[in-house]
Design a protein around this nucleic acid. Structure first.
Length: 462
RNA sequence: UCCUCAGUAGCUCAGUUGGUCAGAGCGGCGGACUGUUAAUCCGUAGGUCGUAAGUUCGAGCCUUACCUGGGGAGCCA
């Protein structure tokens, strides 16, 4: 007999039919005569209730069916006599695939703290919350590909191992096969990378953007979606040292087109979640964040505020609020400032544009005022910057002078500069932190709980 | 990296001015109950009090260092 997934069984109208269901036991209740097993197979957040008439089964078998064990059940799908579920399985045959020692199995029927579950990341998939989170994470990954594919974007794989340190987006992890106990050195005492695997110093990528631009300036519209690494010693609920980033890059897009895309993209993803992850979102709405659904709908149905950095600064300086960090033109906005704008002043997502060039990256398009660049940050409530992007500088001379001003390694950027030398074009792009999106969509509060196996300073377990 | 709070049973926590302070609930185990829904009821076993020094007649409690975790900040996505 073929297995039927629980998601299908729960919506089935074929009561009376013989079925085979397989899954992990969430709870078992009952007495000497009858037992009720809540079974889950990951296909849905809901369990199916298996009803066991104890006299039909070996006592030792029933004893081994404990929380966490894995079983296959043959039986009849019937209307439930009890309340709380429409259908249940009247078991006729049970095969025990895997026992789960009740004394040492870490997960209980009752709720656990997120911290405890994090230490049991290998088993936390078996909880309602993490089942919901990772089903939604999958749905969002799929929706991202679907969105871009439907719009004619190409999925471009940029390298994980990179020989350039051009982004300046933070500390990088080294990649090497050198013998760490016997590191070869030059006469001047520096490490001799000539004998290393690639014959040069290499790192894990902090961004695929620069390579993405190369693709966009030929394929038109591309996006990357892959792991990214930052060796920053950041210990916050919003940072990981290994995280996934989506970076679209589009030829012939100016900053307005870029903002339009970013807003449409995020709303598409939220809409997709609401339409395809309803049960998981409702669970999270009840158990994790009251008001989650309301918040998602609100963002979906309201336009993002768009304004320049300069306008934002004047709002902040005009408010009566006392700031821990001073506000002033030329200073980067702090978390408290962004939070004020998003959560108190406008009470909706905000896109800030045209930041001072001194606080932004070298590749951003310079405005005619000579002071600002065509940057954009999309700020979300509770999360802060969820998207950062810009129109890129397509003018060779301006780009080169900026590289020199900022003392970037000009030699290493020859291939990037070549695109401005040969058939340059106006183009734009942005980066979206995938886990920050998942935080927003699930209502979870710690980024370590929206990636299966979080990598953070001092933690690389599993 | 900085600030701050915390670390006591498998889990979540209580533990007063240093002197019955080794405790509760849940979970586990044993038992009761013919349909349960985080089942209920009765009984029972679990702990070098994060680690290491120190103060003291005496430390879960005070001091110092370190480790781990939470929250906030910085860096950023």
């Amino acid at each position: 007999m073929k297995r039927t997934k629980i998601k299908e069984l729960l919506t089935s109208t074929k009561t009376g039919s013989e079925i085979l269901v397989k899954g992990w036991v969430r709870t078992k209740r009952g007495n000497r005569n009858i037992a009720f097993i809540a079974l889950n197979d990951g296909s849905t957040i809901n369990n199916i209730q298996v009803v066991v008439d104890a006299v039909k089964f070996d006592e030792n078998l029933l004893k081994d069916i404990t929380t966490g064990s894995c079983i296959a059940v043959k039986g009849k799908l019937v209307e439930s006599q009890g309340q709380g579920q429409h259908v249940e399985v009247d078991a006729s045959e049970i095969e025990l695939y895997g026992k789960s020692d009740a004394e040492s199995y870490p997960l209980q029927k009752k709720g656990h703290s997120m911290e405890f579950l994090r230490e049991n990341a290998h088993l936390r998939f078996r909880t309602n919350t993490f089942g919901a989170v990772f089903r939604i994470r999958h749905a969002m990954a799929y929706a991202i590909h679907k969105y871009f594919n439907d719009k004619g974007f190409y999925y471009l794989h940029t390298p994980i191992i990179t020989g350039s340190d051009c982004e300046g987006a933070g500390e990088m992890f080294h990649v090497t096969t050198l013998d760490l106990k016997n590191i070869p050195r030059n006469d001047d005492g520096n490490i001799d990378f000539k004998t290393d695997f690639y014959g040069k110093e290499t790192h894990l990528t902090v961004s695929g953007q620069l390579e993405g631009e190369l693709g966009a300036l030929a394929l038109g519209e591309i996006y990357t979606f892959g792991p990214t690494f930052r060796a920053e010693n950041s210990n916050t609920p919003r940072h990981l040292s290994e995280f996934w980033m989506i970076e679209p890059e589009m030829a012939f897009y100016n900053l307005d087109d870029n903002m339009d895309l970013a807003e449409e993209f995020v709303k598409y993803l939220i809409k997709y979640a609401l339409e395809n992850c309803r049960e998981d979102l409702e669970f999270l709405n009840n158990m994790i964040e009251k008001g989650l659904l309301e918040r998602l709908n609100f963002v979906l149905n309201n336009e993002f505020i768009r304004m320049t950095y300069t306008e934002a600064v004047s709002i902040l300086t005009g408010s009566s609020r006392k700031w821990e960090y001073p506000v002033g033109w030329g200073r980067d906005l702090q978390a408290e400032h962004e939070r004020y704008l998003v959560e108190e002043h406008f009470k909706r997502p905000v896109i800030l544009t045209d930041y001072p060039k001194e606080i932004k990256a070298f590749y951003m398009k310079q405005n005619d005022d000579g002071k600002t660049v065509r940057a954009m940050d999309v700020l979300f409530p509770g999360i802060g910057e969820i998207i950062g992007g810009s129109q890129r500088e397509e003018n060779y001379d301006k780009l080169l002078s900026r590289i020199r001003e900022m003392k970037m390694p000009e030699k290493d950027l020859w291939w990037y500069l070549d695109t401005r030398k040969f058939g340059t074009a106006p183009h734009s792009g942005f980066g979206l932190g995938f886990e920050r999106l998942i935080l927003f969509v699930t209502g979870m509060s710690n980024i370590r709980d929206v990636i299966p196996f979080p990598r953070t300073p001092k933690n690389a377990e599993f």
